[in-house]
Design a protein around this nucleic acid. Structure first.
Lengths: 331, 331
DNA sequence: CTGAAAGCGCTAACAC
DNA sequence: GTGTTAGCGCTTTCAG
């Protein structure tokens, strides 16, 4: 089928080993040998076999596995982009997976990926089944958990505190004079990070003396429609709310659309706040008040943590890449 | 490090081969043997080695490579989701890459991926370097080109015609009485599919007797900001346009924001049309007139085409998954 | 600077 | 139903 080291060796009149050294750009061969080998490899259309390389030596794999909550999240593409740019440059490739906010699905994915003997792994969140953690500890691959900061990561962690995001937004809205806050979420307990934001939000509101009035938790995917109908449902039950914090920006924009459709003035009658920092949110007629999440930076930092470890450097155990609240015109 | 078939075989008092058969769920062993082997494998925390399996037998790889134009495009996540759901179910995993609209980068990616001896490949677009095509022809892996339909795909193709999208939008706007159309694009000639839409658009307008008046082609990434500033530039030059077609929905929404900021009434003073069918576009105060692209369906169809071929079935050479123009309130 | 030998863990092919 | 043999293409190790 496709030629191998032996074919090149034969055609170039050297040994397999010399070809291997030349092709990997090492040392231990003459200029003449190098040129000859390169030329032959080119002529034969040689395509290296990483399967054999990675299989033959445990150091040689250039495969990194990455698992995200949902592939359709707008944020995920940017994280992946950060990872891919940092890693691709160095000759690594990324195998991707989704856990759909289920630790069981994540475990299944980890089993699959581990069977490829990856050089490193990037997981989302701090929540894993016991079996996953055990599997990971058995594996020599360095692991980075992204998004949420864990007190004690399995190996390394990159991100920020979702609880703190909620706190900050709660305090901000209280400072702005909001007194009757609601919340519209999605995926209920499955999305642990969204839950952490809600917990922080509640805590800050309680502290301010004006606790959360009502919340609507949908089971749908957290998109525009969910935000639209979530706000409708919430306001039907609690019409006197003066601000609503949403699970994310998509939902907040959906909520904004609902408010507009009902003639509810934002922010005068009702404040609206999101989370995530979609590009769309900053160019709406009214810029959305939200928390901007450093997606690309998280991806880049995760990749760098992995690379450091692979180079034998210790590697930062926890890297904080802060999210920041950006006041807009909707709350 | 981690246990292998031999370890299990020894502990279970059978041969490697029997263990292999049991673990792969084949036939040719007794119930008792099966239970014993499974139990031992479990106890030893056995993690299969796909590297060895795929290396040892060319049929065994479960890796699919997928290359997209940009990881940060909102559409890409949905395509990937469609692919991953169809493929993941069957035990395949996806290795991802981006070509940044460059055929050279794509070629580099193809070289990397091919060295993993993938079971199949999904590429975006019909544009490839000669070397890429040659590489692909040498490889036994089935290839699906998605997004744009090629008259003669390398192997298989799934998508629709971008040229036709442009035609359809041009005809639609002409029918709606628009007479002075402009276009705002991005990435210039790098994005061949966007160019095809523009070509179709121009052709339809010319045919209608009211050819394209002006166009602004940016070098930026096709996002909200580019749309905003692109429209500003275009209108500064050609203030009398009565409709503008954008490279995609993100840009169209940016343009909408610019119009709003200038007190330009949409659609009365200026019509705006996009392409892509972002969820955001349908829930704006005014629903965007756009072409909705069947992202998930394309991903699913691509995966299915690959699977058919891998099962030895012929597999459809060209699968049309039509995009459709959805009239909104902006044009 | 170059080469020979061994082996990574698995599966295909064939024997029993 | 089960075992044996050979070998996938590369890298590692050790000899020259």
């Amino acid at each position: 089928m496709t030629s191998n080291l032996e074919d090149i060796a034969r055609a170039a009149g050297v040994s397999k080993m010399t070809v291997s050294r030349v092709l990997r750009g090492g040392t231990g061969f003459s200029e003449g040998t190098r040129d000859r080998v390169m030329k032959v490899a080119e002529r034969l259309g040689y395509v290296p076999n990483k399967l054999a390389a990675a299989f033959g030596s445990y150091q040689a794999s250039t495969m990194i596995g990455m698992c995200v909550p949902r592939l359709t999240s707008g944020l995920f593409g940017h994280v992946l982009d950060g990872v891919d740019r940092a890693l691709g440059r160095l000759g690594y490739q990324v195998m991707i997976g989704a856990n759909n906010h289920s630790t069981e699905e994540e475990e299944a994915w980890v089993r699959q990926i581990l069977s490829w003997r990856p050089a490193g792994l990037i997981l989302s969140g701090r929540n894993h089944t016991a079996a996953t953690v055990e599997l990971l500890r058995q594996s020599p691959a360095p692991v980075v958990e992204i998004w949420d900061l864990t007190t004690s990561p399995i190996d390394m962690a990159v991100g920020f505190s979702h609880f703190d995001c909620g706190i900050e937004m709660g305090q901000f809205l209280a400072r702005r004079g909001r007194r009757r806050a609601g919340y519209v979420g999605a995926l209920a307990r499955a999305d642990v990070m969204g839950q952490a934001r809600l917990d922080g939000f509640k805590a800050a509101l309680a502290q301010s003396g004006h606790p959360l009035v009502d919340l609507e938790m949908l089971q749908d995917m957290p998109g525009f429609y969910a935000g639209y109908y979530g706000l409708e449902t919430l306001l039907a039950r609690s019409p006197r709310l003066d601000v609503v914090y949403f699970h994310n920006d998509e939902m907040a924009i959906g909520g904004l659309a609902y408010a507009q459709s009902q003639g509810i003035r934002v922010p005068q009658d009702l404040g609206i706040a999101g989370w995530g920092g979609m590009e769309a949110a900053s160019i709406l007629p009214k810029r959305l008040t939200t928390t901007v999440v450093p997606t690309t930076a998280i991806g880049k930092a995760a990749a760098e943590a992995l690379i450091a470890r692979l180079k034998g450097e210790p590697g930062q155990e926890v890297t904080v890449v802060p999210a920041r609240l950006v006041p807009g015109e909707t709350a």
